[in-house]
Structure formats: structure tokens, C-alpha cells
């Protein structure tokens, strides 16, 4: 079988083949660690009946939507009370409510966010304003400690 201009065609095909399978070469031989977010914090361990604001499966897929709604309600409407479908009441606050239990951002939030390939510095952009309470260090910077009434 004669291929005319075979030099160009074969080089082109080779480049295409490598580009099309690029992730295989990039990830070749790497051990992919599962995301494995940790739920072991003192507050959660102490809970008799472990529950989050919504059922677990829903929290996994919907937490970003929920937080976005909370932000809108708090910042724009000044509402701070959230009533979950099961009747429990929560304060709409990432720092005081979410982090009360999930005080381990590095082992909880970051694990999945990194695994999903979000850019740590900018995405999710929650933490360009918020800080993790447990990571507040005295004297680390005045910016970090903003009075809550200021919102």
C-alpha cells in the first residue's frame, strides 16, 4: 500500500494520536489516591446521631448551591435563619455553622476540591473572603478577623 506524501500524513496522524490519548501518557504509572474526605472531627465524633444539614448524598452534590443561596439570603436579604427540610434550624454561616463540625478544611473541603481539579487559589472562591476559624492565628493579620456584624 503506497501512501503518497506519507511523511506528512504519518507525522500528522502520530501527533493526533498522541494528543487524543494525552491523559493516558500524562497519568501513566501514577497511583490515583481516592479523594477520601475526612469526617473525623471532635464535634462530629461527639455527635450521637450523625447528620448534616441535608442528607449526605444531597450535601455532596448540592452544597455549593446551598452555600450560594445562603450567601444571597444573608448578604442581600439579611436573613440568617435556615430551616432544613427535616425541621432543624441552622444559622446561615459558613464560618460558624459549617465549620463548627467540619473544622478540618484541609482534610475535608480541599480533598474533594483538589481531586476534582479545582484551582486551589481561586476556585471555589469562598475562601477569598472567608477564613477557616481554626486556622485563624492571633496576630496573623488584621484582615482575617472581620467582625461578623460588618456583613
Amino acid at each position: 500500500m503506497k501512501i503518497y506524501d506519507g511523511k506528512y500524513i504519518l507525522i500528522g496522524l502520530l501527533v493526533f494520536g498522541v494528543l487524543a490519548t494525552f491523559p493516558i501518557w500524562l497519568d501513566h504509572g501514577k497511583v490515583i489516591a481516592p479523594a477520601d474526605p475526612s469526617l473525623n472531627t471532635p464535634v462530629i465524633d461527639a455527635m450521637m446521631q450523625k447528620h448534616c444539614i441535608l442528607p449526605k448524598a444531597q450535601m455532596i452534590t448540592e452544597h455549593m448551591k446551598l452555600l450560594n443561596v445562603w450567601r444571597t439570603e444573608v448578604v442581600r436579604d439579611g436573613k440568617r435563619l435556615y430551616v432544613a427540610p427535616d425541621g432543624r434550624k441552622y444559622e446561615m454561616s459558613l464560618e460558624t455553622e459549617c465549620f463548627r463540625c467540619h473544622s478540618n478544611k484541609a482534610q475535608f473541603c480541599d480533598r474533594c476540591h483538589n481531586f476534582a481539579g479545582l484551582d486551589k487559589a481561586t476556585d471555589p472562591y469562598c475562601f477569598s473572603c472567608h477564613v477557616v476559624p481554626s486556622e485563624k492565628k492571633p496576630g496573623a493579620g488584621a484582615v482575617a478577623v472581620v467582625p461578623k456584624e460588618g456583613k
Binding site: 500524562l26 483538589n114 481531586f115 476534582a116 481539579g117 484551582d119
Partner: peptide, 26 residues
Amino acid sequence: LRFFTLPVPSFVQGLDRLDGFFQVGL
């Protein structure tokens, strides 16, 4: 590609950020 690479190459993240530039919703 962010589903097929770990760690995700920075150009994919950059593209993602540019594409989601308006930050509407979550």
C-alpha cells in the same frame, strides 16, 4: 481534561477560570 488528569494541568484550570469568568451561580 480535568476529569482525566490528576493533578490537573494549569492551562485547564486557567481555561476553566476564564470560561467561568462571570461567576454566576454555583
